[in-house]
Amino acid sequence: MATITTERPRTSPEQAAHARRQRVRRQRLAPILYIGPAFVAIALIIGYPVFNAIGTSFLNASLLAPGQDTFAGFDNFTGLFRDPAFWVVMGRTLVWAGAALIVQVGLGLVIANTLNKKLFARGAIRTTLIVPWVVPTVLVALIWRFLLDPVSGPINEVLRGTGLWENPPVWLADTRFVLGVLVLISAWKWTPFTAVILLAGMQQIPPEQHEAAMMDGANAWQRFRNVTVPGIRTSLALVTLTTISGAINNFNGIWLFTRGGPVGATEILTTMAYRTAFTEFDFGKAAAISVIIFVMMMAVAVVYFYVVEGRKGDKR
């Protein structure tokens, strides 16, 4: 960067014109200088791989035979679509995302609504509730795998001790319960985030609206239903988007607990793609699965922007 001294010598007209030209050129260049480095990093690490992944999904590509990729057309996709196992995983992914949405947004609404009231030590409560969100999933996995451990874990111990359940299951190894348990653990980690966003939305609602509703004799539920919910529509839409996309994209929340097991009971599209790529080394098929995930993401995003855009009149 050229430095400009404070004491400028008197300049001739030519010099002034030259300086002006230089300044104009610098101004044109400036955006590139500022945005360029970040752009290069994003293009190299996100942009290029996206196109590469889409390309790979149309190839017969294997890590075991590098450099021998052949064009496969839609074979990777049609192969998946004809495979009943793929549809089972697809169905489970949708159930996983739907359950995440119901639990996390439902509970998030209740929590946010509670925190929006005047509680003792409200700030401290809110801070404490966010802690699971900042803890890495691997630690969440460590804690919950211990809590659910059939020998040392306290949960089964309590169930047996209180006589609630004589023979409690091995939660993470039982195909009947494992997916539900993972949904709940995931909610334990992610609901605080949902609640914080919803709370921020609720705090934007002018208190006069609540007071007016109270004056009209509305009870707590009616006020929640008719004042709070409409007031946080934008936050609700955002939270719905992040929860669905987060669940479909979730990998750690499954892999670090069960690796998709037992016997595939918690396999969703992301773990299937990873397994296909790095244990079966079928890059083409794995890329096809991930492109399908990508298309689902885009569909969710399009719906989101359609919904938000459709309410342009609303104040954000």
């Binding site: 790979t56 793609a273 794995a286 991930s290 995930i293």
Partner: peptide, 22 residues
């Protein structure tokens, strides 16, 4: 916002293979 949300939403698994190669 559209760009940021889109970038956040790319499936990490999708980029794992090409990134591995990159």
């Amino acid at each position: 916002l559209l760009i940021v949300v889109a970038a956040q939403m790319f499936p990490a698994v999708m980029l794992a293979i090409p990134l591995f190669i990159t």
